[in-house]
Design a protein around this nucleic acid. Sequence first.
RNA 1: GGCGCUAUCGUCUAACGGUUAGGACGGAGCCCUCUCAAGGCUCAAAUACGGGUUCGAUUCCCGUUAGCGCUACCA
Length: 480
Amino acid sequence: MLRVRFAPSPTGYLHIGSARTFIFNWLYARRNGGTMILRIDDTDVERNTQESLDSIFEGLKWLDLNWDEFYRQSERGELHQKAAKAILDQGLAYRDFVPDTFKDVDLNEVDIHAKFNPVMRNMSKEESDLRANGGEPFVLRFKVPRESRKEVTFQDLVYGPQSKATEDIEDFALLRSSGAPTYHMASCADDADLRISHVIRGQDHLSNTFKHVLIFEALGVTPPNFAHLPLLIAPDGSKLSKRKHGPVVSVTTYRDAGFLPQAFVNFVCLLGWSPKDDREKMTRQELVDVFSLEGVNRSNATINFTEQDPFDPKAVWLNAEHIRTMPQDDLAAQLLPFLPQADAAKVRQLVPLIQERIRLLSDVKTATDFFFQENPYDPALLIPQKGDAGMAGRALEEARKILGDVTEFNHAGLDPALRAGAERLKIKAGQMFQPIRVAVCGRKDAPPLFETLEVLGRETCLLRIDHALEQLAVTKNQTT
RNA sequence: GGCGCUAUCGUCUAACGGUUAGGACGGAGCCCUCUCAAGGCUCAAAUACGGGUUCGAUUCCCGUUAGCGCUACCA
């Protein structure tokens, strides 16, 4: 039975790298009919926050990623204690009563061979028990078997065969002096207990895995399969941090900026993984169908953002691709929160006009602002290419007549009528359309004219054309 | 410092010994066009460096350099 888990520690908001780890686990589970487990690794009570926990749930909810089982490490303390005791009882761990040995040691100076205290490591069971029973505080350390065994090895599903000399592994802590388990202890005990079959996590744990293998063996279970994921890093090569890189590393920032969850997932999957067939835009189902650990590569991926432009251009492009290809009703529903002044029916009307013109959902606000208000503009914009104010005026007069008279106020009625008007004035269609467009939209870049006029409605259009004619007159008087 | 991992266009990536080193984003240009988009076409842009192995290395091996990670009673 395939079982995977995502095990965040609630010490920060859900960040993009964690989100990707969840997604890869989720895809792997869904692809292979496995079980997805969400486990909150909250053993570090000092640093845990409720906010952070909320942020994790909020992010996962937005991404619409579900899980089949849920656990909290803090509720499983008994299991961790039992596991630590079992290791100690077998003589595979020892109590360290002077736990601050390395407190003031510069790690750059110290040699690994000094990284355990031989007095503590070799203390007799009797003395150790006696001092523990006497209430003396201690850290429980794993007694790395450097004599009986030369190296620790495991097979990583992404990085291949891994090995490390036991000489190079320090006697790491299992239990703190408070009695609380360390991450290594709790994580392995839980993974064993929950029968996790595949541990898929960030590459920052690759070298920790040797310790984990040791723990699993001490626990008498065969270690799970491991798959480590390359890290996501910032353009300056450093790892993503909120302090250094700001809100761009937080999942909810993408949500609030108008990303579609499916586009975000799509983008993040392309960081460190490839379907190998040049496909880029993929639906969630396509991702599930094709995902495999073999497609994961080994080098860190840079998320390409700058201070001016906080989102990777490819993420934005993918978002636009998803927007363009989604059903119009779905898009309307997604857009609604970004247009507080509009009702659902109005948004539904606007969708066809802007679907292929926005890249982020939030773009809809500026893309459609003139449907809700008349924007100020420079009257000079009314003047068409290779034309003058006179031409603009004639075009607008003609347009006003046509828009007032035409029976079908839609593309079918407007298109031939306005083109015919241009012909009468002996100007090009484009020269006819530009003054109208600017008059009604307040700018040159806008959705197709006839559809725009239709949605705006006859009355508004006539009003705005009148207004444009007034402005034109004013400018004329000023120049003459 | 020690140990581990990594190294293809600016960025994401493909090429599991033989390709004019492919695709995408972004950039430049052209076309289409009622503007803006979208779409189509074209161009610029990479195998970190040095040694091997091989008839032949992006690909395998070694070294150098660089980056990242671990080296906590943080995860």
